[in-house]
Design a protein around this nucleic acid. Structure first.
Lengths: 226, 226
DNA sequence: GTCTATACTCTGATAGAC
DNA sequence: GTCTATCAGAGTATAGAC
C-alpha cells in the first residue's frame, strides 16, 4: 500500500505502529521509537521528517488501503443491500487485520496538526460517504428500513471500527468469520430485505476468503498484545 | 456521583476532564492542567496525589455512575428484551451526556498503572456482564436470535459507546432521542421479538425522560468542542 | 490552603564527525 | 547512510516561605 519504501523506513514504520498503538502517540518518545527500530535517535531523522510526519503517513496509508479495498470490493455491484454488506466485510476485515494501524487512526486523530487534520478528515469523509450512499439508496428503493440515517450510519460504522479494539487472532473467531457476523448484524439492524425475505449474509453476493487474500496480500505478521 | 468534593477539587476534576478528553492524558501537562484549573502547579498537589491518581478517579467515577444508573434502571424488569433495551438506553444516555468522562475512560485505559488497571477492568467486566446476561437470557427463552453472543455483545456495546465520540448536543438529535434510536438498532440487530412480532422501542416498558432527569440530576453544563 | 523557585529527567530535534 | 554529543524547553513533582 505504501509507495516504495526502503527496509529501514519499513522498520521505522512498523516500530511506530507497535508503539503508537500500544502506548499512544503522545506517550511514545523519539528515543524509544529509535530503539524499537534499531537505530539511534538522530539516524531516525534521515528517514522521517518528524514524529508528526510519521503519524500523518500512517493515517494516510490506512485510509488509502481502506478506500482502495472498498472500491475494488464494490466493483460491479449495484444492489444497495449487497453494497452495504460488502462495505461491512471490507471495513471489518481491514480493521481486524491491520489492528494497530486502525487503532492509531482512530485514537490519534486529535494529535494531527492543522493542515494534516483537514487532509485526513477529507479522506475519512470520502470513505464514509460510500456507506452513506448505500444507506440512502437502500432506503429509497425500499430494501432497507432505517428511521434515522445519520444515527444508523454513525452507530454501525462505529461498531465495525470497534473490531480493531477487541479482535484477537488467537481468539475464538477468525477474521473472515467476524466480518460475516457483522454483515448479519448490520443487515438486521437496517431491516434489510431481498425479495420478500429479510436479507442474510449467506444469500448475498459477498466477497470470499480468496478475494481478501488477493486484495490484501501484504498482511502484517505480528501484532501488539496490548 | 463523586463522594463529597471541595470546590477546588471539583474545578481540577473538570479541568482534567476537558483537557484529557481533548488532548489525551499523556499529552496534557501538569502546568497546563493547573492553568486550566486556575492554580499553580504546586497547589495542584494539595488536592491530588498525582496525575495518575486523577485519571483513576475519573475512571472510577465513570463506572460507578454507569453501574448504579443501570442497576436502578433495571429494577423490577425481568423480561430479557426489556432489560436489554433499558441497558441500551442508560448506556447511550450516559455516554451522550457525560461525553468527556466516557471518552477518557474509553481512550486512556492503557495509561493506567498496574493495580489501577485491574480495578477498572473488574468494574468494566461487572458492568458488561449485565449485557451478557440479558443476551443469554433472551436467546434461551427464544425472544432474541443471536448467532454469536460474543461478537454481538462486543459489537453492540461498542456501537453504543461510540455515541460519546460523535454526539453533539447542538446536533440534529437530542440525547433521549439518540438513545431510543439505539434501542431500535439493537433490537433489530438481535432479532428481538415480543409475542409473535418483532420488538420495537415504542412497545416496550422503557425509561422516560423524567426518569433520566431524576437519575442523573448533576449533568455537566459544558462540554469540549473537540 | 496559596505561592515562587527549583530539582531532575525526559522531550523532539540538530550539529557535525565518520 | 551511521553515530556521539548536545541544545533548549517541557515533563512531573517537591521544598519551603507565607
Amino acid at each position: 500500500m505504501t509507495t516504495t519504501t526502503t527496509p529501514t523506513e519499513e522498520r521505522i514504520h512498523l516500530a511506530a505502529l507497535r508503539l503508537f498503538s500500544r502506548k499512544g502517540y503522545a506517550a511514545t518518545g523519539i528515543r524509544e521509537l529509535a530503539d524499537e527500530a534499531g537505530l539511534s535517535p538522530s539516524s531516525l531523522y534521515n528517514h522521517i521528517g518528524s514524529k508528526e510526519d510519521l503519524l500523518l503517513r500512517i493515517m494516510r496509508d490506512g485510509y488509502a488501503r481502506l478506500w482502495s479495498t472498498a472500491q475494488s470490493g464494490l466493483d460491479g455491484i449495484e444492489e444497495p443491500v449487497a453494497r452495504l454488506a460488502r462495505l461491512v466485510q471490507v471495513h471489518v476485515y481491514v480493521h481486524a487485520t491491520y489492528r494497530q494501524e486502525c487503532r492509531v487512526i482512530d485514537a490519534e486523530f486529535g494529535e494531527l496538526v492543522q493542515g494534516a487534520r483537514e487532509e485526513i478528515l477529507g479522506r475519512r469523509d470520502d470513505y464514509e460517504s460510500l456507506w452513506a450512499r448505500a444507506l440512502v439508496a437502500g432506503s429509497e428503493n425500499g430494501s432497507m428500513l432505517v428511521p434515522d440515517q445519520r444515527v444508523a450510519r454513525l452507530g454501525l460504522l462505529t461498531m465495525c471500527t470497534g473490531v480493531a479494539h477487541w479482535f484477537r487472532p488467537e481468539g475464538p473467531n477468525d477474521v473472515f468469520d467476524v466480518s460475516l457476523r457483522h454483515v448479519d448484524l448490520v443487515l438486521s439492524a437496517t431491516n434489510a430485505t431481498r425479495g420478500r425475505r429479510r436479507a442474510v449474509a449467506s444469500g448475498l453476493p459477498l466477497l470470499d476468503r480468496s478475494w481478501f487474500d488477493r486484495a490484501l496480500p501484504d498482511r502484517p505478521v505480528f501484532q501488539a498484545t496490548a
